[in-house]
Structure formats: structure tokens, C-alpha cells
Computed example of a mutant assay.
Amino acid sequence: MAPKSAEQATAYFCASGAAAVVNFPLWKASAMGQSGYTLHAKTMYGRMLESLQPPWRGVFAVMGGMTWARAAIFYGSDKGRHLLQAAGVGHSASIALPPLAISTCVQVVNMPLIRCSIMLQNPTATQTSLWQMGKHIVHKRGFFALWHGLSAGIFKTVPKYVTAVYVKEMMDEWLAPVDSTDRTAVLVRSAKKSVIAGLAGATLTNPLDVIRNTMFQTETSMFQTIKHLHAKKGWRFLYQGLGKNLVAVAVPVSLTIFLTDAFSRILA
């Protein structure tokens, strides 16, 4: 029996929350690596360990932002696809349009939280809370500076979720069906779909993460930031923090998809 709408929403929210808890240290390591924040360790392994250590500033707000955002995108995309298909919209468009619209709105709403939380991870930052960082930005640059980097954030976030949702739906169609009573087979099938969808979304977004995070520090436009990064590092900047980002982005997206399937079976 298919889960009811309320049960589906609960499954998406629980899955997104669990993924957010796992993801915060990985997100912090990725944000620090892409932002070019100065770390004391000399080796790549040492820098990764250092970035994963406390202080975990803004941890609860970041996890809350991650939870509602992913739940809204994946649940909204699922419901939107069914509504568009019922209205006669084409197959591909009905899959791609909902995450395109919802992830754009989510990015606009979450942008102040994203900016403040990433800047808060700077080891040299004197602010110790998101509220203090937000006040600092507004005092220094004005209220709308909280949305500085939105263009790069949209270019980064929207393709990630459109790709992840689209690949998830395509994998659901391409993978061979399994016996619904065989729990192991069902979980393995879900894991394949989840991992491939997460990696597909993550691989597209690293350069725009680097650009957005640098914009936060330099207060320059997206094109000026690209010019600055290219002058400083050449096209190598496209791969800055790539390894950490693949983990930080692919893990929560894959976990959200996988755990949603698991929770949906429990709640059905």
C-alpha cells in the first residue's frame, strides 16, 4: 500500500534530519576547504581532521536549515511530479520543473543562514554565533549583503537538486524491479539509486561552491570573483576542496533518498 501524503512528508522530514546530523562535520570541512580558510595542519589528511574538530559554530541552525530545505525539495519534487503528470505535462519536464522551482525558493530563503554559517567557520572570525555574524554583515555592508553570493548559490544548488531528483527518478525506472517482500534486495536497490543520484548532483557543483564562498569573503561580484580566482590559481580553482565537497554533498543527498525509502516502508 502506498504511503499517505502525511506519512510521506514525515518520511522525508525524518530522513532529511538524520542526514543533516551526519552531514554537519562534513559540511564544515567542505566549507572551510572551499573558502580557503587558513588551517594549521600541513598535510591534506591533517587539514581534514582539523576542519572536522570543534568548535562547531552554528551547528543547530545549520542542521535545521539543511533538514527543512532537503525535505521541502525532495517531498515537493515528488508531489509536484505527480501533479504535473496528472495535468498532462511531459515526463522529463514533470520531473525537472518541481526541483527547479522549489530549490530556487529554498536557496533564496536560506541564503542569510548559508552566508553567516560559512563565514562563522573562519578560524579567525571574532563572532561566535550566527546572530553576531549577521549583525556584523549588516552593519558593515547593509541588510541585503546577507544575500550576497545568491547568484552563485542558485547556479550551484538548483542544478544539484534537479540532477539528483532526475537521476533518482530515472534510476527508479532503469533498475530491475525486486520482490517487495525481500528486504535486502529492496535496500540494495534503494542504495544504488541513492548513491548514483547523490554523486551526480555533487560533481556539478564544486566550482560554484568555491565561487560563492569566495564571494562571501571578498564582497565582489560573481564575475569579478571568477577573474580573481583564475588570476590567483588558474583553472585549478575549479577543483578546490573537490574531495571534501563530493563527500559533503553526496552523503546527505544519498542518505536523504535512501532513508526516505526506508522510512516510507516503515510508515506505510
Score class of each variant (00 low, 15 high):
residue 13 F to N: 03
residue 64 G to D: 01
residue 255 L to T: 09
residue 224 Q to H: 15
residue 45 Y to T: 14
residue 24 F to C: 04
residue 88 G to T: 14
residue 222 M to E: 15
residue 267 L to R: 04
residue 158 V to E: 04
residue 241 G to P: 00
residue 176 A to W: 10
residue 94 S to E: 05
residue 129 S to L: 13
residue 210 V to H: 00
residue 68 W to F: 14
residue 212 R to L: 10
residue 74 F to G: 01
residue 106 V to P: 00
residue 109 V to F: 10
residue 240 Q to S: 11
residue 252 P to Y: 03
residue 211 I to W: 01
residue 214 T to Q: 10
residue 163 T to R: 03
residue 207 P to W: 02
residue 134 G to I: 01
residue 195 V to Q: 00
residue 16 S to F: 04
residue 139 H to S: 07
residue 224 Q to Y: 11
residue 174 W to A: 14
residue 156 K to H: 08
residue 183 R to N: 15
residue 134 G to K: 01
residue 236 R to E: 12
residue 3 P to K: 08
residue 166 Y to E: 08
residue 8 Q to P: 01
residue 99 P to N: 08
residue 112 P to G: 03
residue 188 V to C: 06
residue 19 A to R: 01
residue 188 V to P: 11
residue 234 G to V: 02
residue 141 R to D: 05
residue 221 S to G: 13
residue 98 P to H: 00
residue 178 V to M: 02
residue 266 I to D: 09
residue 13 F to I: 09
residue 180 S to V: 15
residue 32 M to I: 08
residue 261 D to W: 11
residue 144 F to E: 04
residue 156 K to F: 08
residue 222 M to L: 10
residue 65 G to R: 02
residue 83 L to M: 11
residue 262 A to Y: 14
residue 217 Q to T: 10
residue 109 V to G: 12
residue 28 K to P: 02
residue 246 L to I: 11
residue 15 A to E: 05
residue 234 G to Y: 13
residue 193 K to Q: 15
residue 265 R to T: 12
residue 267 L to V: 14
residue 172 D to H: 08
residue 16 S to Q: 04
residue 22 V to K: 01
residue 161 Y to A: 02
residue 199 L to N: 07
residue 160 K to T: 13
residue 41 A to N: 09
residue 95 I to M: 12
residue 214 T to R: 09
residue 12 Y to S: 11
residue 19 A to P: 00
residue 106 V to F: 03
residue 68 W to H: 13
residue 134 G to Y: 00
residue 21 V to F: 05
residue 200 A to N: 15
residue 10 T to I: 15
residue 96 A to D: 05
residue 242 L to C: 13
residue 141 R to A: 12
residue 162 V to K: 00
residue 63 M to N: 05
residue 139 H to F: 06
residue 75 Y to D: 01
residue 61 A to H: 11
residue 168 K to V: 03
residue 12 Y to V: 02
residue 166 Y to I: 03
residue 5 S to D: 15
residue 20 A to N: 03
residue 268 A to C: 13
residue 84 L to Y: 09
residue 97 L to A: 07
residue 266 I to F: 13
residue 23 N to T: 08
residue 251 V to G: 10
residue 60 F to I: 14
residue 126 T to S: 12
residue 209 D to L: 09
residue 136 H to S: 07
residue 14 C to A: 14
residue 266 I to C: 09
residue 183 R to K: 15
residue 114 I to K: 01
residue 212 R to F: 10
residue 18 A to Q: 05
residue 75 Y to C: 02
residue 102 I to N: 12
residue 132 Q to G: 04
residue 137 I to H: 00
residue 241 G to I: 00
residue 145 A to G: 05
residue 220 T to Q: 05
residue 60 F to M: 11
residue 12 Y to T: 04
residue 268 A to L: 12
residue 30 S to C: 06
residue 209 D to H: 08
